[in-house]
Amino acid sequence: MTLANQLTLLRIILIPLFVVVFYLPFQWAHFASAMIFSVAAITDWADGYVARKYNQSTPFGAFLDPVADKLMVAIALLLLVGLHHHSAWFAAAAAVIVGREIVISALREWMAELGQRASVAVSYIGKIKTTLQMTAIIVLLIDHPYLLIPGYIALAGAAILTLWSMIIYLRAAWPFLSVNSVSK
């Protein structure tokens, strides 16, 4: 078990703790859940760094890392939608982010079956989207009145970049998605 894989597993182990802390009946619960999410976000960066720097990339890690990322983000957004239940645009932004993750995960899996996974590799826009998304989630988890507007702006920006990056990935995959290319 490599250090990179251990960091990924830590991210998954943090999920139940994150949820329990979020719902604790204490004033500091949301701040503490934001700190747990922050640790998870740091492990997301750290596991990739460690895997590349120390040549610790493994098939298990390649499978588990994106699963851990998507679980943490989807669960955080689900909790936040409950917290901001009065806001239809908030629910729509969360649905765009989660929906895109499902679509792109399926697209990457399908492209890998065609031997074209590199066509839909993570892009620079995707990295910016992830950074903005993680920042938005952390700020919104803190649930402080002065941070709501910046959090909403960051979430809206993340949702826009989510759509933009999805379009980029779909355009790259389009030649392989068309009916003519499949039948050839």
Rank of each mutant, 00 (worst) to 15 (best):
A88F: 12
A88K: 06
W89E: 06
W89H: 06
F90K: 10
F90N: 07
A92I: 14
A92V: 13
A92P: 00
A93Y: 13
A94F: 11
A94N: 11
A94R: 11
A94K: 12
A95C: 11
V96N: 03
V96M: 15
I97N: 06
I97G: 05
V98M: 12
G99Q: 07
R100P: 02
R100V: 00
E101P: 02
E101F: 09
E101D: 15
E101H: 03
I102F: 14
I102W: 09
V103N: 04
V103C: 08
V103M: 13
V103I: 15
I104V: 15
I104K: 07
A106Y: 06
A106M: 13
A106V: 13
A106E: 02
L107K: 03
L107Y: 08
E109D: 13
W110E: 08
M111C: 06
M111W: 08
A112T: 10
A112V: 05
E113R: 14
L114C: 09
G115V: 07
G115Q: 10
R117F: 11
R117P: 02
R117K: 14
A118W: 00
A118H: 13
S119D: 13
S119A: 14
V120R: 05
A121M: 05
A121T: 09
A121L: 01
V122P: 04
S123H: 04
S123A: 06
S123I: 01
S123W: 05
I125M: 13
I125D: 03
I125R: 11
K127V: 11
K127G: 08
I128N: 04
I128Y: 13
I128L: 15
I128K: 03
I128S: 13
K129T: 09
K129L: 12
K129D: 11
K129H: 10
K129Y: 11
T130P: 03
T130N: 13
T130V: 10
T131P: 04
L132M: 14
Q133E: 14
Q133C: 08
M134G: 11
M134H: 10
T135D: 02
A136G: 04
A136D: 00
